[in-house]
Design a binder for these strands. Structure first.
Lengths: 156, 156
DNA sequence: AGGATATAGGAGTATTTTATCCAGTTCGAT
DNA sequence: ATCGAACTGGATAAAATACTCCTATATCCT
């Protein structure tokens, strides 16, 4: 709800690509299957991001997509901005077009603070951050110290 | 983007109602005009909120809507929850259904922190807060110490 | 060179959100 | 009692978002 579903898909795809460290191209189909994202839809999204310069693409066999910059340099902000735009964040949350720092709007100041935090989050989080966090979580789950029989009661 | 347009309209309508201090009913049409909200659409929204117990409604002449509780007791959260639901906030931002505090998801922890802030904002801000902030802003604008000729260059 | 493969891109469909309209019901006022 | 005002609720429409399909184009591989 901070960003669209398109952006969500893109972010997940980027994290996936960040794991393909050897800078090889990865097929949309492969990403879509492993990340459980509608393939055709994801293709569209990645095409957009390739046009915007965030991805590199190649056609034909051995083709696919790969990150154009190191994962450390790609922020969530750059992805969300490219797909959703930032107009929602630029206007006042109350929807009053006339509202600015001087004009009246009850929500203005408190929202400004929260918006800043959201933008900080988007600008301060890179694909590399997410990829690393994901790796660490996976490692923790791979070697459970005290495995309890089977993976039975899987709480959702 | 934190909440839907419906919620935005509702919040503005509630702030409007909070100003009708004498607990009288206010017509949808009147709110819609003054707040510049599509009247029929707003009617639907207020009906929903009346059904959920956040508003009191009355038909016929002298009828309309009024707050059911004091504005201090109505949080943004209660409105947004009633209209949008909180399912978006309950699930992991990455869209992974399987993701929970133990399961792997790169975004989980950082998002958890931000989500908490957003919910704090929604739960910690009441309609009375917004109404008061709006009043204060208006007062500041009403009596400019040094009025400069006319209100000419009205910057958007 | 030519066939297989993967992205590019346009067009089309489905679903959700936003917005409108109208007939029905309730209630106040004359 | 009756009329009109205002909410109620269902049906409809428009717009935005999410998703699918098909053809073209570029590239690798034999």
């Amino acid at each position: 709800m901070i960003y669209s579903r398109s952006s969500e898909y893109a972010i997940r795809a980027f994290v996936h690509l960040a794991h393909a460290t050897d800078a090889k191209y990865v097929m949309v189909k492969q990403i879509a299957e492993q990340e459980d994202i509608p393939a055709h839809f994801l293709a569209k999204i990645l095409q957009q991001l390739a046009r915007k310069g965030l991805l590199r693409s190649s056609k034909g066999p051995t083709g696919g997509f790969c990150l154009r910059q190191p994962a450390e340099d790609i922020t969530l902000f750059s992805i969300v901005e490219a797909l959703d735009g930032m107009t929602d964040y630029e206007k006042c949350i109350s929807g009053l077009a006339e509202c600015n720092d001087e004009a009246p709007c009850g929500m203005h100041d408190s929202w400004k603070d929260l918006r800043l935090r959201i933008l900080d989050y988007l600008e301060g989080t890179s694909i590399a951050d997410l990829a690393k966090a994901l790796d660490e979580k996976r490692k923790l789950l791979e070697k459970p110290k005290k495995p309890r029989k089977t993976v039975a009661a899987k709480k959702n």
